[in-house]
Nucleic acid binder design. Sequence first.
DNA 1: CGATCCCGCCACATT
DNA 2: AATGTGGCGGGATCG
Length: 879
Amino acid sequence: ENIFDRSRMSPKTPIKNEPVDLSKQKGCTPERNPITPVKLVDRPQSDPWTPTANLKMLVSAASPDMRDREKKKELFRPIENSEQSDTPDSLQYDTVDDSTVDEFEKQRPSRKQKSLGLLCQKFLARYPSYPLSTEKTTISLDEVASILGVERRRIYDIVNVLESLHLVSRVAKNQYCWHGRHNLNQTLKMLQEAGKLQYGEPVTFFQHKEQDLEYKFGEQKKETIPDSQDGPLLDFSEPDCTSASANSRKDKSLRIMSQKFVMLFLVSKTKIVTLDIAAKILIEETQDTVDHSKFKTKVRRLYDIANVLTSLGLIKKVHVTEERGRKPAFKWIGPVEFPGKTDEPRGHSPTSDSLPGMQRGACAPYQVCATGKQKFTRHASFNGAQPCEGTRRKVNSEPNSPRQERQDEYCSKMINLATVCRQKIEEDTRNPSITSPLSLLSVPGDSDFCVNPLPQAVFPVVQADVPSLSLSNGISNQALHPSMPAASKTENGKPTLLPNQPFLCFPSSSLFMLCSSLQENNSRGTQPTAEDVGNRSVEAQAAVPPSASQKRSSRKCASPSAPVDDEEPAAKKQTMEQSDVPLSLVVPKKPFESPKAESTPGSGCTSLEHLEAFHLDLTSPVAPEAADKESTRPLDSQEQEKWSQNKDHNETSPGKEHNSKENASQPFLPQYLYVQPTAGLSSFNFLFSANQAPGAISLAASPLPSLSVPCVMVPSAALASFPLVCSPAVTSPLSPVPDGSFSAAASMNFSVSGLASTTPVFIGTTAVVTPKVSPAPSVDPQQPAHPALHLSPVLARSCGAVKLDSPVCMGHPVTLLKLQQPSSAPLTPKSIRPARHEAFFKTPGSLGDPVAWKKNEGNQIRNASSVQRRLEISSTSPD
DNA sequence: CGATCCCGCCACATT
DNA sequence: AATGTGGCGGGATCG
């Protein structure tokens, strides 16, 4: 091995001197290679046995000097050789080469050469900034470490920061999934929002007196966020879930720090943050005690983070001169405004990427999880992922599942964040006193966390619907996308918070999952490829295949009509993608959004404004993503664009679109369709399980009729009195319940309805699913008449044994709930939780009780959320 | 001499 | 117990 390397490295430096030769030897010149064998040779060089193994060996064996050289040279070579053809920057290579050239000199690498920043650049160079959706790249820590010639520890530093920005997500032990910057803007946006909430509006960190400012800052924060501690803070730390379980470790302070650090930039007017201030702020948040040592350590960490962020082109180092003198500081040079997905070349691409995988993954994994309690187990830090991870690990031995989860998490994270933010905002508005510190950024990963939101979202909706509705609707619509709204929600993991919305989202999530699962099955069954692929690369399987399969399956099933398809987008993406430049990212502002956000001065403004801003923002950013993700394929880029455009106006249009799409949509929609009231169904919102193409389609074809079958109607504001209307079969059961609840608590009703709805939804879904084969929904052989029945099968499938009989579900909504809980856990643990809990603790039997409960609880839950959650968790876990 | 921050010990978590 | 993660801070370098 060594020899081999040496030859390369060797003083000869054939590379420089005799490029030609090298080319021959290595096969650099593919053109030239007349024979395949040559190639082989080349490759072997890169890795005779196992790429990793060699590298490792070399690295370990080699002296530091060697390493460096190797790194420089080899690092990149392998990359080149490897599939990742497109490493974005040739420049780097050049640079490298130069350095490489030096080799002989071997001067010891000087510290700089080993800097984390440089390492990070190398790391980033290995992956495309905007990977195609189809290709999911998995990152092996060991491999990367060996390739880059560093200890794994260093890779963690990088990855942790990247993870905080969602550029990567942990898939499994030692494995990370590369997402690229597709969602970077969204993440930043979320952080910005979160930052605003926490810190208040734009702050100047250093300029005047730092201290003063600092303090101020701190104070504000405190005020805003009373109990910062519980969560590791804001962001992503996932709020709830688990704080308890997850918290266990100090968890990824680095990640959290990173996010906070970024937040500071985003919130800062000047976009400049000095290290010391940042350190102080971060320390305060974390803990009151400020040791000097701590400070010092914090600063060190910040350097680490700053290096990575610098490599990402998000910040740059500057010096601020203050009274004392010049202090180190960093300036944000990344995007400031986040219109939405816009940043990237093609907004959708990202979504598409993440979406497919996400969706699928989410569904499956979660379901699986459902069985277990784990979901909650640890939400860990912001990454929803982690929490999920825990779950995964436990749950799935399979490689796939983990990935999926990751993906899901990722998606869900994003969504969750948005959701959380919204919730938060809303909550704040409503109950200023109460703060859910944690909630700020929910973890994207876990839908579980979402739970909190749910309660609010679910119930609250009613009142404000109208105005907000439009917004919410817009969001939902957008997010969902005409066809896929529900799905998107689900994906997010957020339960759907759309507080404003009249309808209940969360049920959908559950539904969603189910559907997805089904799809997966179908897809897989249909398409063996996924598995095949799996062999090749695990990641690929999880991410790519699923999405592809789904899409296709959907198409197939539904109707070929869906022209959209990945391909086109992909092409676009590719073209677009190439522009990696981080710096360039600057995003155009959207007029409406930015103003609000920024304009809001500080604390005061507030919630409303914030909310609005959020909505808007969310809409644009989130919605698109969601839509993309979900619909993924179905939506054409064009469509997406439309949306984006429409966003503003969506409110009105969306419903229509949905309808139209629904009707026509047959093809795409995977999950279900959500029809907004606006369209014409003023009062009702419908959730259709659109996902299964065939069945759905059939339904779609005859819209109204179809409705009766699968869809669930959620009461709009007007319907407030009404809990839910379910598919016919379902309805009857539900109806009884509602009565009691009706007037008593509208909110309650909703919640209830929500629960109930879930059931029906399932049913619908099921029905639909089944139909996939045969268009007629009723067709379902087993239990034609009742959708519920269908459900059961579905559930069974999705959940596995968990579910059991459909009949049960069908018959009693309440029962369902109970049943669901166990089963549900998997589905939408978080979102559902609140309701479930209630149900759980209480008696499932009496709806009324639950309702009352909920009423009261709504707030309480929030307040006590952490505690309750824990309780819940504990309770759950036992199960 | 202060700013940076590499390096790797070591604790905690997960297998 | 082994291995994965990642907090943490000593002390080397840089400027």
